[in-house]
Amino acid sequence: MALQWFPGHMHKALKEIKESLSQVDILIEVLDARLPYSSENPEIAKIRGDKPCIKILNKFDLADPDLTAQWQEYLERERSVKTITTSSDDPAGSKQIINLVRSVCGHKEAPGKSVKAMITGIPNVGKSTLINILAERIIAKTGNEPAVTKSQQRINLGGGIVLFDTPGVLWPKLENPHSIYRLAASGAVKNTAMEYDDVGFFAADYLIKAYPELMKERYKLDDLPDTELEFLEAAAKKRGALMAGGRINLHKICEVLLNELQSGKLGRITLETPQMITQEKVEMAAAAAKKVADKAKRKQKFKDGSLTPDKKDRKEKRTEKRGAQSKEMKKRPK
C-alpha cells in the first residue's frame, strides 16, 4: 500500500510541538476510540515525560463500547494519564474535559494565572470539532478530510484555561504494519494516499472475524463466507457492485465497505483490542531483534570478505608469507 506518510509540513509541526510543550501544564491527546493505539502518536509520548496527560477517546459513538472500556483501563495504567470519552453528538459530555483539566491541574490555578493546556492529535480524529465545542464558537476549521489545521494557535477557553491548538501530525516511521492499514481504514489519511482495494481487503478480513453478525446483517447475507475475498464478492452481488458481463467490481465494493465503516453505518466497531496490541508488540520486538542480528551478521560477513574455503586458504597463505617477509626484514642488518 502506497502512502505519503510523513509530508514536510508535519515535520515542521512536530518540531513546533516539541518547542512549545515546555510552556504548558497539561497535554490533551485526542485519539480515535476505534483505534486508540494506532491513532496515538509515539513521538508525543517520547517528549511528554512526566507531564500530566488526558487521552480523549473521541468518536466514542462509532466505537465498540465494551472495547472502549477495556482501552480506558489499559491506557490509565500509564502514570499521569487520565482518559475520557467524547463524541460530536454529545457537546455536554465533551465539556467534561474542562472539569478534568481543572481536577488534574487545580494546584496550578492562581489569581491572574491561567492553566495552559496543549491539544494534539493525528489528522481526522475530530480535534477541531472538539475545540469548537469547548470554545463555544467556531475557532478551528473543520473538514471531512485530514490535515485541515495547518498551524498552532492559542485559544482562551475562559475560566482560567488557555488552549494551545496544534496541527494534526503523524510520525516519521510507523513500526507496526497493521496500524498503517487501520489508520487508512478509519480515514486518518487522505483518500488520494491509499489503495482502496488493499485497505478494503484488510478491513474485510478483520470485520468478518470480529463482527460477523454485523456484516451478515448489513450486507444481507444468510451465511458469512470464510475469506475476505469471498465476502467482498458476496457483498458486491448484493450491492450491485458489478462490471460489464456481471464481473465483480472489487474496487467499488471496497470503497463501499470503507465508506460505511468510517461513517458508522456498519455499527459500533473497534479495529483493535489491547490483547491484539500486546501480541503485536511482542512480534515487533522479535522483528527488531532479528533486524539487529541480521545487520551484525552482514557486517561480520563484509569484514570477513565473504571468503570461500579456497579464498580463505589463499588469504591465510598470503598473511603467513607477509609475516615471514616481515621477520626476514627485521633480521637484516641496518
Rank of each mutant, 00 (worst) to 15 (best):
L163I: 04
E213N: 13
A285I: 02
E272F: 04
I97H: 02
L3H: 11
L31M: 09
E213Y: 13
E280I: 08
E213G: 00
P123K: 07
L14F: 06
E230Y: 02
P91K: 07
A13R: 05
K312G: 05
K301R: 15
A324T: 08
L266W: 05
K291T: 05
S186P: 01
L62C: 07
K237E: 12
E145V: 14
P52R: 10
M284Q: 10
K150W: 03
F202S: 11
Q72R: 14
E19V: 15
S88E: 13
L271F: 01
L130S: 03
A188D: 07
E76S: 02
V104I: 15
K321S: 10
A285H: 02
D294P: 08
S179L: 06
A244S: 12
A184T: 03
L257P: 01
K216T: 00
M194C: 08
P111Y: 11
A193Y: 06
A2T: 07
K59L: 04
E16I: 08
S128H: 01
D197M: 14
V189N: 05
K299Q: 14
R247K: 15
R218P: 00
P274N: 01
D294V: 10
D310F: 10
K312S: 13
R79Y: 02
D197V: 15
A324M: 09
A193K: 02
T68N: 05
D294L: 15
D222Y: 05
P225G: 06
I269E: 01
A289W: 03
A92N: 11
D294Y: 12
A244R: 11
Q153R: 06
T85D: 02
L214D: 03
N132Q: 06
S186K: 04
P42W: 10
V199T: 09
L130D: 05
G158H: 10
T273S: 13
V282G: 07
K331Q: 14
D313T: 15
T273R: 00
L183R: 04
D197K: 13
D198M: 06
L224E: 09
L57T: 01
V189Y: 10
Q262C: 12
A69I: 15
E280D: 13
P172D: 04
Q153T: 02
A185Y: 06
G49C: 08
K113H: 11
L67W: 10
V101F: 07
D64V: 00
Q262N: 06
S94V: 07
D222S: 06
H251Y: 07
E283M: 13
Q153I: 04
V282H: 03
A203K: 08
S88I: 15
P172L: 12
V162C: 05
K113A: 05
E136T: 04
I138Q: 14
I17K: 13
V169G: 03
T83K: 00
E228W: 13
I26E: 00
F201V: 11
Q152D: 03
D226F: 08
K220C: 09
E29P: 03
N58H: 14
G245V: 09
L100Q: 03
S179F: 15
E213A: 12
E136V: 00
F201N: 09
K190M: 12
C254G: 07
E76D: 00
I180Y: 02
